[in-house]
């Protein structure tokens, strides 16, 4: 039996790689449980003794993280459903449009993806000031009205394009209009893509630091990433508290990902017939 030792060797190697990728998160968690104010460790500490869970309460007292947390949740709760709605609608329309319009919109989306984000910050600031959106949470949510990212629209476009045209043709004969085709046939078949776009957009809005940095002034409208940076400015060397804040910011993302990981890999399989030509449209 030559196979068994090889298999063990494979899993040993794989585990080594996996440990390497999870180690930064593990270190974050462990550093967040150290007693604050203690002299920094001299040797590497794999488990802090004692584990100080109170650090997680202390960060809320030190910085305005509670409001920031509520604001962040609010932004995600509004932006994600909006994103799924607008991105899937646009993707569906692109998949159903005829030749020239379709190629035009796909090309437009790819060009939009190339525009450097930095180039958009300043004019958007001017635009939001003009619209009276500065210093409101609406400024953070606004991109959700257009699908949040051309990438999400393209994901839906690729998904809908794979649905067999006969299915739509049959429903059209039954008198269904395009809106009904999108809502009743397209979306139910695109559930894995909805899930992936939902998760990706949730993480986009949850982790967004640049938009609040540019468009938000009042402390009462800070989101969690800004709150964490404020905490850092208050006490830049208090590593236990900073790592507790970083953990607080990371945990929802990690949990969300773990919840949907099965679907995540499934969506990879879903796009089975994809090749690089698809990406180019």
């Amino acid at each position: 039996m030559k196979r068994t030792p090889r298999r063990v060797l494979y899993h040993l190697g794989a585990l080594l790689v996996v440990v390497l990728f999870v180690l930064p998160l593990y270190w974050m968690l462990m550093a967040s449980l150290r007693q604050p104010g203690q002299p920094p460790p001299r040797t590497i500490e794999w488990l802090p003794n004692p584990a100080v869970w109170a650090n997680y309460a202390a960060i809320f007292e030190l910085a305005p993280l509670a409001t920031a947390l509520v604001n962040s949740v609010l932004v995600v709760l509004v932006a994600v459903p909006l994103t799924i709605l607008t991105a899937s609608g646009a993707g569906f329309a692109m998949a159903r449009l005829n030749g020239r319009l379709q190629r035009g919109t796909v090309l437009l989306s790819i060009v939009l993806l190339m525009i450097p984000a930095v180039a958009l910050w300043l004019p958007r600031l001017v635009l939001y000031r003009y619209l009276g959106l500065l210093d409101t949470l609406a400024a953070l949510i606004l991109p959700a009205l257009m699908g949040s990212s051309p990438f999400f629209v393209l994901l839906f476009y690729w998904t809908f394009r794979r649905i067999s045209p006969e299915l739509f043709a049959a429903a059209t004969l039954d008198g269904a209009g395009n809106l009904a085709l999108w809502w009743r046939i397209g979306l139910p078949l695109a559930r894995p893509t909805m899930l992936v776009v939902g998760v990706l957009s949730a993480m986009l809005y949850w982790g967004d630091f640049v938009s609040p940095l540019l468009y938000i002034r009042s402390e009462s409208r800070y989101t969690l990433p800004v709150g964490v940076v404020v905490l850092r400015q208050m006490d830049i060397t208090n590593w236990p508290l900073l790592m507790a804040a970083a953990t607080l910011l990371s945990i929802p993302a990690v949990v969300l990902f773990l919840l949907v990981q099965h679907w995540f890999w499934f969506a990879g399989r879903f796009s089975e017939s994809a090749d690089a030509t698809d990406v180019l449209g």
């Binding site: 919109t105 958009l120 257009m146």
Partner: peptide, 28 residues
């Protein structure tokens, strides 16, 4: 009209694309 419903679905994206990407890009 079928094409018109499609354009309706596409409108938010196209308006946003122009307002939040194209125009800002040109302004920069």
């Amino acid at each position: 009209a079928p094409q018109r419903t499609l354009l309706l679905l596409l409108a938010p994206y196209l308006i946003g694309a122009v307002g939040l990407f194209v125009l800002p890009g040109v302004l920069t």
